[in-house]
């Protein structure tokens, strides 16, 4: 597939900016939105994450890949405040972060999705969407009692939610319980709901897991769309085709460390990456042979 011919201006900008970066772990980016320094997290005796330096370029789609247990999801949890670091610090959009709570990160414009989709199945699709909106007047209980205070804002929120549902082709399910959606539709709903927060950085944890091939293509389009609207996307993925297809930059983790970075093409021929994957596989098969 010839990416060059279909490339959007945003994509071109991102790729051009990143073309100047050397393909080495911890390399500095021209305009980083997220910078992590010496971030470490241990569970028991095992070091799950040990990242010396990592930058994510603003306005790009960055993929985070690596074998199972490489610490990708843990890093996600650390950066989004769902877990706290043992040591290290990071900054987001110029703000230095210590032990920020998840809801604070979300308010600052960093929104995430989950590996196992967390659509709220007992709420309707539209309620799921409305929930995503921030700064809601009616979410204060004393305002909640008085309809007049929040009805107007609610109408605006609903309108925006409906636009997003339209874009994600979920309009027909508007009033269904989210539990009635298929796995792929739930992924879409979760992504759409995340957009309700008006994020500047969208972090997707395995967006393709459990999604049927027909839907994968449109999910790809949606992710590209986010970047084209000026958002930054960081995603964890195992599907290498997809990674190669849509990402502007790839970060490879193994055993908690960043072992390689680079453009998709550079990464797929990087011996360290091949080694990490092979090594992991060898390690696993050894384990499995044990009685």
């Amino acid at each position: 597939m010839d990416a060059e011919t279909t490339m959007s201006p945003a994509a071109r900008m991102a790729r051009e900016a990143l073309a100047t970066c050397a393909a080495s772990p911890g390399v500095a980016k021209p305009d980083p939105i997220l910078v992590a320094d010496s971030v470490r997290r241990k569970f028991g005796g095992i070091t799950a994450v040990d990242v010396d330096h990592l930058e994510v370029q603003r306005g790009s789609i960055t993929a985070l890949i690596g074998p199972n247990g490489a610490g990708k999801t843990t890093l996600f949890n650390l950066l989004t405040g769902f877990d706290s670091v043992d040591e290290g610090r990071w900054s987001f959009d110029g703000r230095s972060m210590g032990r920020a709570a998840p809801h604070r990160m979300a308010k600052l414009g960093m929104v995430r999705t989950f590996q196992l989709t967390k659509s709220l199945t007992k709420l309707s699709v539209i309620e799921n969407m409305r929930l995503g909106a921030t700064e809601q007047i009616g979410e204060k209980w004393w305002n909640g009692l008085i309809d007049a205070r929040w009805r107007k804002q609610e109408a605006a929120i609903t309108e925006r939610a409906e636009e997003l549902l339209e874009r994600f082709k979920l309009s027909h399910m508007r009033d269904e319980y989210a539990g009635a959606l298929s796995g792929g539709q739930r992924k879409l709903l979760e992504m759409a709901r995340a957009l309700m927060t008006n994020p500047i950085l969208v972090m997707l944890d395995e967006p393709m897991a459990g999604v049927n091939p027909a839907l994968k293509q449109s999910l790809n389009e949606h992710i590209r769309g986010l970047r084209d609207e000026g958002m930054t996307v960081l995603f964890v993925e195992h599907d290498m085709d997809m990674v190669h297809d849509i990402s502007d930059w790839v970060v490879v983790m193994a055993e908690g460390r960043v072992i390689a970075e680079g453009t998709p093409d550079a990464i797929s021929s990087n011996p360290a990456v091949i080694d990490a994957y092979l090594g992991a596989h060898q390690g696993r098969s050894l384990l499995e042979d044990q009685p």
Partner: peptide, 28 residues
């Protein structure tokens, strides 16, 4: 009234999945 309001919506969402609500910027 409260449960029909956005406030009640947040509570119901928390009942189902706290983490989802946290990720959307609510102080659970």
């Amino acid at each position: 009234k409260l449960m029909k309001s956005p406030w009640g919506r947040v509570l119901k969402a928390i009942r189902e999945d706290e983490d989802a609500v946290r990720s959307l910027g609510k102080n659970v």
